[in-house]
Design a protein around this nucleic acid. Structure first.
Lengths: 341, 341
DNA sequence: CTGAAAGCGCTTACAG
DNA sequence: CTGAAAGCGCTTACAG
C-alpha cells in the first residue's frame, strides 16, 4: 500500500495492453472490447489503481475543483445559518462527479475579487459559486471578464449567470396571512443589509403581501441582519407613537435580538408584540418564545448549485433552477393581536 | 486576456531563453544570471504569465492543496464558534505559500474516514488537518496508514502527529479563582461530548483547579455541547437537594441554554446562580446577562496549523506549537454567591 | 550561466 | 478493436 504509487502504466503492463486502452476502459469510453474492458477493470482493482488527479488535470484541462469565496468576516461566520447546509449540499452533488470544493473566506471586498482573479489565473478551479449577492455586485463583471464558469445563488431576476433560486414570496405571504388571521393590522418590517439582494427581495415580498391583503405597509426600520440591529429596532418600534402589533424581520438573528430587547423593555412577546423571522435557524427553536419564521433550504440550494456548475463546466449549459418556495413555520413568537388596537 | 493561455513556452520564446531558465528565474532558483532573471521577470509580467497549477502539480509532485474534513452535521454547523475563525486562520497562513484549502463535511464517522482515503488515493491534497479529536480517534490510524502528512488541533498529550494546542487550564483556573473570590464554594460542571478530547481536557482542568483552591468538586452533569444539554442540566442542578451556587459549562452554547432554562424556572442569574461558559462566542455578548466565559483563539490556531502543515509537507518536519493560554472574560453572568449558603 | 531533454500521469486523436 | 505517439505545462537532473 505504501511506497510507489500504482500508475496507468502498471495497469497496462500487467493487463498486457496499451495505456490508452486502460484509459478508455476505465472511463467508459468506446474503443475497447467488453472482454478487454473486464480484464482491465479486474487488474486495476487488484492493483488498487486510482487515477492521479494531477495527470487527469493536466491532460484533461480540468482541475476537478470548484471554488466558493465567502465574503464574510471569518470571526462572525459562527452564526450564519446558510453556510453549513449550503456547503453540505454542494458536496452531495459534486463529490460523486469527481469534484471537490475549495473554500476561501475574506472580509474585504477587494480581497474577494483578488481571490477570484487568482483562482482563475492559477487555473485552480473550473468554476465558482457566487452567493450573498449584492445589487450591482462587483464580482459579476470580474467573473465574466475572467471567463470563469459560475452559478449564482438567489440573484435577482434576469441575471446574467445560471442560477438557483428559492423565492421568499410565498413564505412571507403565508406569514402575513397568518398574522392578519390573528388580527394584526399594523405590521412592521426590520430590514437586512440594504444593498443585498436578499434584503431587497424580502422587503418587496413583505410590501407586496400586505398590498394583496389590502393593508398599508407598517413602519420600516433599516437593519443589517445582526442581533444588535434587531435589538435596536425593538427600541425604535416600541418608541413609536403608534407601535406596530407585529414585526417581520429580514432574518432570524435580528428577530431574536428584537425579542430579547422587547422583553428587556418589559414588552410581552407575543402578548403585546408578535415577532417573526426568516431562515429557520436552529437557535430559533431554543429561544423563548420559540420563533415563528420562514424555512429556507440551504442544503437543497447547494445541491442544485453544485449540479448546475458541473453541468455548466462539462456540457457548457445549465438551466436555471427554482426550488420549492420558502415555507412558514409557526411557533410561539406570534399570537393574537392585543385587544386594544 | 481571453482565449489562449500564456505558458512558460511563450515566456521563454519571447525572452529568447529556454523554459528551464524561465522556471529557475521565476522560482528564485540558482543557475540564472541576474541580468537574465530580470529580463525573464519583466517578460513574464508583460505577458501576464501565471504558472499553471496543473503543470506544477504533475511535475512537482504536489497538489498545493490541503484538506479539512469536518465531522459535523452540516445542518448544525451554524452555531459552531470554532469553524469560521479556524478556516480564516488556515488561509492566512497557507495562501501566501501557494496552497488552498479543500473543505469537506460529513456527519457520518465512516464517511469521514472514506473522505480521507479518497483524498489520499486521488492525491488531491498534500496533507490534512485533524480537529475535533476524540479519545482513541479512529482517524489517526487511517491517516498514518495512508502516509498523509497531518497536523492535529488540540490533541491530548503525547500525540503521534505534529500539533497546535491552546490549553484550557489557565483560563479555567482563572475562572475558578474569580468564582471563589466571589464567595462560591459549591461549583458544578456541565460536560461536553464525553469522548472528545476537548471535554476531557476541560473537565480535568475544572477538577484540578478546584483542588488547587482546596475545594471539593461540585456536582457534574454530563452534556454534549448543545443548548439543550445546558437547559436540561439547569433542571438537574436546580433540583438537587443542595444546588450549586455556580456552574462552569464545557462551552458557551450549553451555558446559554442553562441560563435560559434557569431563568425560565424563576432562578436569577447571577443573583442565585452564577454561570460561565467556554469559547467566547459572539452570541455570549448578546444574551442577558452577557456571558462570563473563557476566550479561545480559533484563528490563531488556524494560522499555526496552516504553517505547520506546509512546513511538514515542504521540509518534512514541524515543531509542535502551544499558543498563549485561553483567557478569562468576565461579564455579567457571574456574581457574588448568595448570602445564605 | 544556459539549454536540450526527460519525465510527472494522464487523455486524445490517429494509424494500423 | 488495439496500440504507438503526441501533448497537457511544468520541474529537474544533466550536458555543454
Amino acid at each position: 500500500m505504501n511506497g510507489e504509487r500504482v500508475t496507468i502504466v502498471d495497469v497496462a503492463t500487467r493487463a498486457g495492453v496499451a495505456i490508452s486502452s486502460v484509459s478508455s476502459a476505465l472511463n467508459g469510453r468506446p474503443g475497447v472490447s467488453e472482454a478487454t474492458r473486464e480484464r482491465i477493470v479486474q487488474v486495476a482493482a487488484e492493483l488498487g489503481f486510482v487515477p492521479s488527479l494531477r495527470g487527469k488535470s493536466l491532460s484533461g484541462r480540468r482541475a476537478f475543483t470548484l471554488g466558493l469565496v465567502l465574503h464574510r468576516d471569518p470571526d462572525v461566520l459562527e452564526l450564519d445559518p446558510f453556510f453549513g447546509g449550503f456547503i453540505g449540499g454542494i458536496e452531495d452533488a459534486i463529490d460523486p462527479r469527481g469534484y471537490a470544493l475549495v473554500l476561501q473566506i475574506s472580509a474585504e471586498p477587494d480581497e474577494v475579487l483578488q481571490r477570484y482573479e487568482k483562482l482563475a489565473a492559477d487555473r485552480r478551479v473550473d468554476g465558482v459559486f457566487v452567493n450573498d449577492l449584492e445589487v450591482d455586485d462587483p464580482r459579476i463583471p470580474v467573473i465574466t471578464r475572467l471567463g470563469l464558469p459560475a452559478v449564482a445563488v438567489n440573484p435577482g431576476a434576469d441575471f446574467p449567470l445560471p442560477a438557483v433560486r428559492q423565492d421568499p414570496d410565498d413564505g412571507i405571504r403565508a406569514l402575513l396571512q397568518h398574522l392578519v388571521g390573528l388580527g394584526h393590522r399594523r405590521i412592521a418590517y426590520v430590514g437586512g443589509r440594504p444593498n443585498m439582494t436578499h434584503s431587497v427581495q424580502r422587503e418587496r415580498a413583505w410590501r407586496a403581501g400586505l398590498e394583496e391583503l389590502g393593508l398599508e405597509p407598517g413602519p420600516v426600520v433599516p437593519g443589517d441582519f445582526t442581533y444588535l440591529a434587531g435589538a435596536s429596532a425593538a427600541s425604535t418600534l416600541l418608541g413609536l407613537a403608534e407601535p406596530p402589533t407585529a414585526v417581520v424581520c429580514a432574518n432570524d438573528l435580528s428577530a431574536i435580538g428584537l425579542i430579547a430587547q422587547a422583553q428587556h423593555l418589559g414588552v410581552d412577546v407575543p402578548g403585546t408584540l408578535s415577532v417573526a423571522g426568516f431562515d429557520d435557524i436552529r437557535l430559533g427553536t431554543y429561544v423563548r418564545p420559540p420563533l415563528t419564521t420562514v424555512h429556507t433550504s440551504p442544503r437543497e440550494l447547494g445541491r442544485h448549485a453544485g449540479r448546475l456548475l458541473v453541468d455548466l463546466i462539462e456540457e457548457g449549459v445549465a438551466e436555471d433552477v427554482r426550488i420549492p418556495a420558502a415555507e412558514l413555520i409557526v411557533r410561539e413568537s406570534t399570537g393574537p393581536a392585543p385587544a386594544a388596537g
